[in-house]
Design a protein around this nucleic acid. Sequence first.
DNA 1: GTGAAAGCGCTAACAG
DNA 2: CTGTTAGCGCTTTCAC
Lengths: 339, 339
Amino acid sequence: MDLKALAASLNLSMTTVSRALNGYSDVSEKTRQRVAEAAKELGYQPNPIARSLALGRANAIGIVHPLEDGDVADPRFLDVVAGLTEGLAPKQMDLLIASATHKGELDTYERLVHGKRVDGFIVARTKRQDERIEYLLDEGVPFLAYGRSDDCARYPWFDFDNEAGARLAVERLVSLGHKRIGYLYAAQHYNFAYQRRMGFLHGLEQAGITPNEHWLRPAGLSRNSGYATMLAMLDEADRPTALIVDNNLAGEGAVRALLDRGVSLGRELSIIIYDGSPPDTLLAGVNITSVIQPTQQNAGQHMARLIRMVMEGNHPLEDLQMLSQPALQIGESDGPCMD
Amino acid sequence: MDLKALAASLNLSMTTVSRALNGYSDVSEKTRQRVAEAAKELGYQPNPIARSLALGRANAIGIVHPLEDGDVADPRFLDVVAGLTEGLAPKQMDLLIASATHKGELDTYERLVHGKRVDGFIVARTKRQDERIEYLLDEGVPFLAYGRSDDCARYPWFDFDNEAGARLAVERLVSLGHKRIGYLYAAQHYNFAYQRRMGFLHGLEQAGITPNEHWLRPAGLSRNSGYATMLAMLDEADRPTALIVDNNLAGEGAVRALLDRGVSLGRELSIIIYDGSPPDTLLAGVNITSVIQPTQQNAGQHMARLIRMVMEGNHPLEDLQMLSQPALQIGESDGPCMD
DNA sequence: GTGAAAGCGCTAACAG
DNA sequence: CTGTTAGCGCTTTCAC
């Protein structure tokens, strides 16, 4: 069932049918009705490829996804993808997920841009210095960044307010009387990690506490590195009374280490984990105090809306930048300072 | 830079250039060289959309992915995706990953088929009774199943020999002197789980051991359910001396339970986990005896080859069905029966 | 309001 | 071996 057949069956020209279907003004209401009805009846579906060719756009937006190691299994990312497809579907837009190796990532962007396979991109996992963003800005390709890079003033993005989240955690611990607060963090080229660490430091500053460098440690973005880092810290004489972990993988590892060592959470050591513990985690049912993103589920939808606005092209930049606020979820893993 | 421009710059017709580029025989070697060179020089990239329209195919194969709960985060799946894109890229084929809710899954297939967005599908996570496969067979849409369903004789598939893997595990334990062997399994509508359980039962039968129903338990496809099931089993008087877990999520939970209870692995209780433990797992460095898929990494590549053969259409069905053999990886979590 | 006709960029008969 | 021509299915000027 193609346009021609549909038109024939209605004794109309393809032109008219096309216009009726695409909601143009210059077609009589009656005709529009007839056409819409017949289209439904006969199960007409426009061929998106032909459509793309004629319109000169792909009707798809791309996500380039490095398919290596733990990277991918990020469940939050997949939530975003789900929200994105939902938000894009009503506009007849597809999501093309292209995989790439880390080193070949830029090549993949080039290939998609050059081959006109997509009209724009979602750039995920932004780095503080992000060559992908540089490239897309240079080429004038529309995109929406998921997370800000260092010069985020120049382009559209959606992000969580990582700095605010970390400050929230500090304030909570300070209000519980803690002054000896440690911090475990992921590699600082991840912008989220950098922002969270800044938030942590600012939070301390605001509370008039001087950070103890010894308790600020890189703990990676994995359970095992979090575990090892925590163990090492526990072996030392001079311990903090409270701890913030900037990501939930390392956080899970750290909590595991505490449990294994029999350190009682919230009493001997208070711990707050950014993003909480992932679902289906084996943490003996401990309810961890966490910084969470209440709008997490909607992130994808917001992003779909934003990228659509980006494609439309006539919105001021400030409407295309959105910061989502985190909140504190109180669990049982923190408590008043006992010192 | 389009074909016309390229042809003009070479003083050739578009036809010739097109043929040269697509490796047709009837073009002189010299011309082919010239064309290839110019194309590279000028950075010519064919427009895949125009190509698709002309060829009447989308040059893409689809994977419909239910984007809910734990489902997605399956890292093995993402390995497969990586292998697939690699294997498809040389043939200029893309992988279109469409997300869908569980209930809307079939709709998504229809939309993609109808809209001619893809030429074929990879159907992952097959069930024993699989409506998606029914649908695609009915519609005559080419596809490759990743995993067999009940009537797998009728279509192309790639699968691991789950039955053989489970038997391998049984044989290992039997050879260590175990007779009291338990089995934890995932929901039996997953074909892999069904096959593994059958393999387990056959293995016992072959060894002349009558299975003790009491030790065969559903343990789900998650860490927490595996943990709970294991704990429950440990609380009972009549324990098996060895245990096989049919998936690595529940397996991780079970091992955690054993560690928490101080049961020494390989002495008090031997355990073998199907698929081993996932990367970045917190299992105190225990090297678990596992049934593994040595060709795991290549699965995606194999599947790319198979789906391409499917699309070609002229291969006998038996060439389009591939069973990958598992192997046993001996760790420290099993040992001789001490009873 | 409606239709005829010209493309979008590429491939594939069919001639030469 | 190479070029001419006619589409693929849709949108969109431009007339009527």
